[in-house]
């Protein structure tokens, strides 16, 4: 059947591209999660009425986050070429895509973290303070656990956005399914390759969404 519908698909190449996409997505999701959490916590804690209320820090962080969130990803990649070259030593391949992916997605996730933390009942934080909890304890034992479902669903959305970003990064030489669809599919007029790459991306997205939804359902005890 695959011979009939997808005559030009080279399955070995397809698997390799899938692996590359998963690799880029996986690594960037992990690092985006860490940086996004830190930035999001900083945004939340320094905002008005919170534990570290600090207008200057909040404003600077918010501006950086907004700037990087506003730049279209394809332009961000181009702008970051010198930076990528300095820290990764190359601008080709999966690893070269990582800085742009992380810098593009982390501020996006940071905002989601901020929103998630804002949804926490203020009374719960007050109760923890009344018990004599330190700020670190509050972050670790109140803020993060109490916002976990929102943090996970935010991460799901971010991961799916990152799959899309990897495809874009692929077009300019990062490898992966986007690269395959563009070079082997579009430029050589083999539509079946493009369609197959799309199907694989869709499957990846569905799986991520499924994992995210299940995790949220398990975590949410409200």
């Amino acid at each position: 059947m695959s011979e009939q519908w997808f005559p030009n698909v080279d399955w070995e190449k397809m698997w390799e591209a899938t692996y590359e996409t998963l690799y880029m997505t996986g690594i960037s999701v992990v690092i985006t999660f860490i940086i996004g959490m830190l930035l999001g916590l900083l945004l939340f804690l320094t905002s008005k009425g919170q534990l570290w209320q600090n207008r200057a820090v909040y404003s600077v962080t918010a501006i950086i986050v907004n700037v990087f969130r506003s730049i279209p990803f394809i332009i961000l990649i181009v702008l970051l070429i010198p930076f990528t070259k300095t820290i990764m030593g190359t601008i080709i391949g999966e690893n070269a895509a990582l800085p742009a992916l992380i810098i593009g997605a982390a501020p996006f996730y940071a905002r989601m973290v901020e929103i998630a933390l804002r949804e926490i009942d203020k009374g719960v934080v007050e109760a923890a303070r009344a018990m004599g909890a330190s700020t670190w304890t509050i972050i670790r034992k109140v803020l993060i656990p109490e916002s976990m479902p929102a943090l996970v669903s935010g991460l799901t959305v971010t991961a799916i956005a990152l799959v899309g970003y990897t495809a874009m990064a692929g077009v300019i030489g990062a490898g992966g399914l986007g690269n395959l669809a563009f070079l082997d599919g579009f430029q050589r007029s083999r539509n079946d390759v493009t369609v197959m790459a799309t199907i694989v991306i869709l499957i990846i997205v569905f799986i991520i969404q499924f994992i995210g939804d299940t995790a949220v359902r398990k975590l949410d005890k409200r």
């Binding site: 009374g123 109760a127 009344a130 656990p145 109490e146 005890k221 409200r222």
Partner: peptide
């Protein structure tokens, strides 16, 4: 110093 609240302020995750 213990404190209790009008809206209980329990952690739903625990």
């Amino acid at each position: 110093i213990g404190m209790i609240f009008q809206h209980f302020n329990l952690l739903w995750s625990r």
